[in-house]
Design a protein around this nucleic acid. Sequence first.
DNA 1: GACGTAAGTGACAACGTTGTCAAAAGACAA
DNA 2: TTGTCTTTTGACAACGTTGTCACTTACGTC
Lengths: 330, 330
Amino acid sequence: MKDVAALAKVSIKTVSRVVNGEAGVTPGLARRVMAASERLDYRHNLTASSLRRSDGRSATIGIVLEDVANPFSSALHRAIEDVAVQRGVLVLASSSDEDEARERRLVAAFASRRVDGLIIQPSSQDHSYLLTERKAGTAIVFVDRPPAFLDADTVLTDNAAGVRRGVRHLIAHGHRRIGYLGDLHTIATAAERHRGYVEELADHNIDVDERLVRLDLRGIEKSEAAATELLSSPEPPTALFTGQNLVTIGAFRVLRRMGLHHRIALIGFDDILLADLLEPGITVIAQDPAAIGRAAAEILFRRLDGDRSPSEHRVVVSRMITRGSGEITP
Amino acid sequence: MKDVAALAKVSIKTVSRVVNGEAGVTPGLARRVMAASERLDYRHNLTASSLRRSDGRSATIGIVLEDVANPFSSALHRAIEDVAVQRGVLVLASSSDEDEARERRLVAAFASRRVDGLIIQPSSQDHSYLLTERKAGTAIVFVDRPPAFLDADTVLTDNAAGVRRGVRHLIAHGHRRIGYLGDLHTIATAAERHRGYVEELADHNIDVDERLVRLDLRGIEKSEAAATELLSSPEPPTALFTGQNLVTIGAFRVLRRMGLHHRIALIGFDDILLADLLEPGITVIAQDPAAIGRAAAEILFRRLDGDRSPSEHRVVVSRMITRGSGEITP
DNA sequence: GACGTAAGTGACAACGTTGTCAAAAGACAA
DNA sequence: TTGTCTTTTGACAACGTTGTCACTTACGTC
């Protein structure tokens, strides 16, 4: 900036004014400054700028996802990015891998870079550590799962209701022995989904047969093992509800392998690319990650614009997509 | 920092030393400083630090992907992140949507935040605009596609060779009328893949029948339309080679719809989640995005560590995964 | 006890910006 | 022409750090 000022024969303050598009600079001077900064390949230094400016904004936000490569998380990421770019805000994206310590490390790394806001798909069981950040003025929004020990804006899917819709669908098709395969119980959404299963059965006066329920299945392999066990038991279920993406894939693999894919019904939570091309197509309770991400980003930026109203808890509804596997009768 | 210094009754320089873990501070003082910064919830300001430090490093890199939500791109992202976190480096990730202007805007936004390095999956046709950034000391690595008008490190898949392997496989199974469906010809990798198709046919003395070739198919719908046309023609191909992810999905949909999925062979470039569960499973030439991302990040950090050797051009080989669709005979 | 050396500590400037405020220049009326 | 008011411009400090260098101790050695 000093060099540009020297070349344009003005003070650096005038260069600053031109660079920031402030009003009240004679057009002639402005042209000279622009020509000079062009010639010197001048790049405005946003970090220095945000250090000095009164609002201290870095025009950068941080997001903590379970895994940036996971389709659900990356759809969130994209939706957030789309809202952010419109405001000239860039996104630091990182994966927590469902690891509490890693989530905290990432948040600390974001904080030391002075991000304006955080969007977190939480892994940890206690978010009171974020109080410090919030006191420092960082806006925080939780997506997909609620925070613990912290009151903050959240955007969630109607997990329990979605599962209930799916289970009801199975019951309507005549099923009474419905197995449930779920993800880690410590994950709030997984617990919610399981709750939906239990409640819907109760509403239809069906006792939960714990032998048909397997929780804490993380990843395709564990799901395959559990599904195999369930389906090989003396009194196997006539339908399966799977509470997560990879669990659904594992279960479907097993059904195929055992030649049961046209005889045992299957409904999974969360949509899967290509699920429509399988035989049968997999009926799912689809979430809307793009809508979740968009909503989270909107709330975040509203906070950054000064909104101080009480925490907002938005729910994005899921919808059932019937494709065949959920319509198999016992 | 000033407050911490006051509370610990030391100079801010000593606080700085403790925060940065520099040697030569009496343990007693160090403890006092740590206690004080704990009590005041002190957060080191990395932006101010990088502004002042001699190397000027921001411990942040920027990556430009086609779309952060696309499985290939997000796998790249994840692999890069994994290398970066080990060094305490964070990743700004953005989507160019195959838009030249957007790519440039993103790079400018990264530059004004003084990222240490850039990893770019390029969309544009001229990268000489990056000379300025490089002169400013930013390390730059290209992934998936080569840069134009700029000599820089690159990590690419062996596109043409991969396609040739697939086409050879089809020929070995007795096919002579092999259709080709490809992505936008302006994308370097798409052009390379098409070249592989033409060359392999030539090697087997098979004339390219232009009626069986459709290029510039962007997205599932366009692919479906082209596949429908090809397969409804008077002399349809007995096999299809699809040059991209979504093109493969579109083609498979059409095969299914026309009831030809067990009669017409199909090999696609790039693997698809669940491709193994379809009937038949889709034979693909699989890229290794994780390996590409890892390699790119490694090269980038080597450059940041001072490596000034000539540009490296690494090729990550693809491999064929046979699952059934590519082994159908005419 | 004097002296040299090494280790620890702090004062100050500087990184590239922008906020503040005062000075300079121009516009207009009397 | 002068005086007043408005607009444009610039000097300087400050943002939160760290590099430089000088100063103060503490410790051995003779």
